[in-house]
Structure formats: C-alpha cells, structure tokens
C-alpha cells in the first residue's frame, strides 16, 4: 500500500535580491514548481541578499555577516532552493569564509549540502518530471557561468524544458560564454562588459530563436537591457517562467504596467 502520509518536503525559498526587486514573477514561478513537486514552501523573512557583491569585492567582513544571517534564516529547512545558480553558488562559498574550528564553518558546510538551484533541485534531487506547461515557439538557452561551472548546471534546464509542450530549443553559438554581467563588473568596466554582452546578443539573435532563456536574473537583465537598446525584438525570460506555465505576463523589459494600481 502506498504511503499516503509522506510529509511534504520542507523547502525554504531563497528569493534572491534581483527576483525580489526586479521580477517577483520568478520567485512565484519557483514556488509554483516546488509545490508541484510536492514541497511545502516557506519564505524566511530574515533573508536579504547572498552577499556576493561584498565577497567578490574582497570585503570578507560584510560577507561573513551576511553569511551568518543567511545560515540562521534557513536553519531547520530540509532544503534551501533559489532561482539562481550564482546566488546558490555563493551559498556554496560560505564555508570558505570561516576558519577551521569556527562553529559557523560547520553550519556553513551543512547549509551548502542542502542548498540547490531550482532546476538542479528538481532534476538531480527530486527526479521530478511533472512539468505542465505550454509555450509554442523557438527558444535559445544561455548557460550562466556560476551555475554551469560551480554547480554543474547544463542539461537539467534543458531536460525540463523538453517537457514543455510546443517548445523547440535552438542552441546558439558560444552558449557557455559569459554575457559580461559579472555583478559589479558591468559598472566597473562598462566598455568591456558592453563588448561581451553585444557578442552575446549577436549570437542569440543568430540562433533564430524568438526568446532568450536563462537561469540567472543578473545575466537576463543585462542581456534584455542590451537587446532593448539594440532595438531587437527578441524576448527574454527566466527558465522557471516557462516551466511553471507563467508566460502570460510581459517578458523582461517588455512591460506595459498600469502603475496607478501597483504603486
């Protein structure tokens, strides 16, 4: 007899600061996917940002403060899941911030072991294959660096996308090359960043796809902003929006919102 009393898997959602501020849809889509996969999702309110801006600027003091705050906020959840390889990758860096013997180091290691990016969580950890979504069109996929190289995310989003009805994937050239976002890099070295993102939008357009999809909002905002500036028609979305069947709202940078209500 099947066990009908399996308790739901308790997941703490790591919202990520960019989804929180720029595109709440991404966090809602992540919640929806997690619930579809049988998880009970909670959003700990003591979370802010993963601390990457401080970490990558060599500011270990503030990185450590934020790391402790995040570790404490997600105490007690079976899993910590977020819609970004870069932010979850940062959570995986936390142990480096603490000395051996520091109790925080053990806690950081323990958090690392249960922190997952959403597509790899669904595929690698839950073996999930219950995507119910339709999107008719040709898309191309950008592999964001941290997800790809730090967390090994490559085939997971593609596998899940293949379950979306109507989607065809047309791979672009250099899908694995950095888009030039790099957090503070894009404002510290604007011209170099601009060259890198221009190369990227060029390859994306050449793929013949009508939509550019990826798993990290930083990169997506960068590429969407560039496509807009170049006057290209290509739409940009986070992969979870396609997977959760949430492509009704405008794509990134495409909005025509009724501000009167929203403010």
């Amino acid at each position: 007899m099947p066990d009908t009393h399996t308790p739901p898997i308790k997941v703490g959602l790591f919202v990520t600061c960019l989804a929180d501020m720029f595109r709440p849809e991404v966090a809602f889509a992540t919640v929806k996917l997690l619930e579809q996969a049988g998880c009970e999702v909670d959003v700990p309110s003591a979370q802010t940002c993963c601390g990457q801006p401080a970490f990558n600027s060599g500011d270990n003091h503030n990185s450590r403060m934020i790391a402790r705050q995040t570790i404490a906020a997600f105490d007690g959840y079976r899993y910590v899941v977020g819609p970004s390889g870069s932010c979850i990758g940062m959570l995986h860096h936390y142990p480096e911030l603490f000395d051996d013997g520091d109790p925080w180091k053990a806690r950081a290691e323990e958090l690392k072991a249960r922190a997952f990016e959403i597509t790899s969580f669904l595929v690698d950890e839950l073996n999930f294959s219950g995507i119910h979504s339709t999107f008719t069109g040709k898309i191309t996929y950008h592999d964001s660096c941290s997800g790809l190289r730090e967390l090994g995310i490559k085939q997971q989003p593609r596998q899940l996308l293949s379950e979306v009805e109507g989607v065809t994937l047309s791979e672009m050239q250099e899908a694995e090359t950095c888009c030039g976002f790099g957090g503070t890099f894009c404002v510290k070295y604007p011209e170099i960043s601009n060259r890198m993102v221009s190369n990227k939008t060029g390859f994306a357009a050449d793929s013949g796809a009508e939509m550019l999809v990826g798993g990290d909002l930083g990169c997506l905002l960068n590429m969407a902003g560039k496509l807009k500036r170049e006057g290209r028609e290509m739409q940009v979305r986070h992969v979870v929006e396609l997977l959760a069947d949430m492509t009704q709202s405008p794509a990134i940078g495409d909005a025509d919102y009724d501000l009167g209500q929203e403010l």
């Binding site: 595109r23 604007p190 601009n194 969407a224 902003g225 500036r229 940078g253 909005a255 929203e262």
Partner: peptide, 10 residues
Amino acid sequence: DHRDMPTPTG
C-alpha cells in the same frame, strides 16, 4: 550608457 535597465514589474 550601454543598455536599458528593465523596470521592476511591480
């Protein structure tokens, strides 16, 4: 200077 900034959606 080089690209637009997508606006928060809500």
